[in-house]
Nucleic acid binder design. Structure first.
Lengths: 240, 240
DNA sequence: CACGAAGGTGAGGTCATCCTCAAGTTCATA
DNA sequence: TATGAACTTGAGGATGACCTCACCTTCGTG
């Protein structure tokens, strides 16, 4: 794979040629290392594989999130593509299911993306647009599937996080030993989303404003006021 | 809470009184720290909270797994208790669902246990007995629920790992912001386990011999021969 | 070509954790 | 109470990752 020559989007000032080349080398190196060891690899190792010094890495990407951001920038576009393809499917349920399959397959194929998806990294403000686009498409996918009578009416878009989170863990635990097992996990979850499976749910979905806080990059501080349990509630009310 | 005076099971030689006391102090300190910060807390901090030196900690527990083991030894018994209670329920489905609820609640209430459950720590050979007992009870729970026509016939006991893994991630991401949300995730998964939800599954369950390898404590080596994908298989066959 | 700004370099300071071990202390037995 | 084995202690070496910065190199423009 030749080094990617993609220039940074909305560049304030164009990078000098050597800097741009090194940026590409770093992103390529990081992409490969992230893919099979996760996004927590040592940055020194990324620099080493890229063939540049650690100082250069920090010049281009002052923080780890900045590097992660750059590495996974294209994934959002890819996902948006999946969502569009799904919406083009005449069968609403199949479109929905295939969309989740595609996203999960991305997780299964790239440990780095799996980390990013599960931990909610790469939430930069600049791809806010893509994010909303994907969100809108997902909302439509869900609406469509509900109208077709295939999906349970009480499923919220926020519930799809359960899929990403769950699959992320299954992938992490079983990729080495049963690389396709996540498909079974996904199929089971999907069956729980069907209309004919619906039994009353014990809790409301994650409120959207909480969704942002639910996948923090990493804030070691901010431990002060933990959210109090809103209702004492009866113990054990899984379903009824 | 007074320091636990529990002596180590099957003691080869009884500890001297001061050593036994320190062991209890260490376990208590670790239990508390693990519970709200996870099992990766610095061992020096455990020693500090216990009021003993780091050297003493290493005397009592030569490795971190040994300490984790000791801290969570009682949980297996607790879970066995849940399984027995579940089997006593005249309603097979409710017994099954309540059992999973109880286990997940343990995860939600104790971040350390959540780690242990998700990562498959604390698999010491000595509570092999308890493990088998729990496994047998779970098999019975599943069989019973299937016979009652409530549970899909193709659910395997290994599939319950998806629940533990998935809930672990949901708890980790949302405990601070929506401490009861895991119940919704569980309820959705449970609906996927019901007989009336069943659609063909795309993959066989995790083979039992692989289950052991699926949740490694931590082996930085052993990276050599990764398991090859057994069948090239058709892309995208989530459900049909 | 020459010059200044942009960029590259990597040794080394910082930090957090792990784990050891030689010396001192305490327990339990006679 | 005396003695030795068991136990405790905590300074400190080892590790690994992070990040900086003073100095050198390269680019690109005039």
């Amino acid at each position: 794979m030749p080094p990617s020559t993609s220039t940074p989007r909305s560049a304030p000032r164009p990078l000098r040629s050597d800097a741009a080349r090194n940026r590409g080398l770093l992103i390529d190196a990081a992409r490969e290392l992230f893919a099979d060891r996760g996004v927590d690899v040592a940055l020194e190792e990324v620099a080493r594989r890229a063939g540049v010094s650690i100082g250069t890495l920090y010049n281009r990407f002052p923080t780890r999130p900045a590097l992660i951001e750059a590495v996974f920038a294209d994934r959002l576009e890819k996902i948006a593509g999946f969502a569009m393809r799904a919406l083009a499917d005449p069968d609403p349920w199949r479109g929905f299911a295939d969309y989740l399959f595609d996203v999960c397959e991305l997780q299964a194929k790239d440990r780095g993306f799996n980390d990013v998806a599960a931990r909610g990294l790469a939430d930069s403000p600049e791809n806010q647009g893509l994010r909303r686009q994907i969100g809108d498409a997902m909302t439509q996918l869900i609406e469509r599937a509900k109208r077709a009578g295939a999906m349970r009416a009480d499923l919220a878009i926020e519930d799809l996080a359960f899929v990403v989170w769950g699959i992320s863990q299954t992938v992490e635990r079983t990729a080495a030993v049963a690389p396709r097992l996540w498909r079974r996990h996904l199929a089971l979850m999907l069956d729980g989303f069907r209309a004919d499976a619906a039994h009353p749910l014990p809790e409301p979905p994650l409120p959207p404003e909480a969704a942002h806080a639910a996948a923090p990059g990493c804030d070691p501080a901010a431990d002060s006021d933990s959210v109090p349990d809103p209702s004492p509630g009866p113990g054990r009310q899984t379903t009824n």
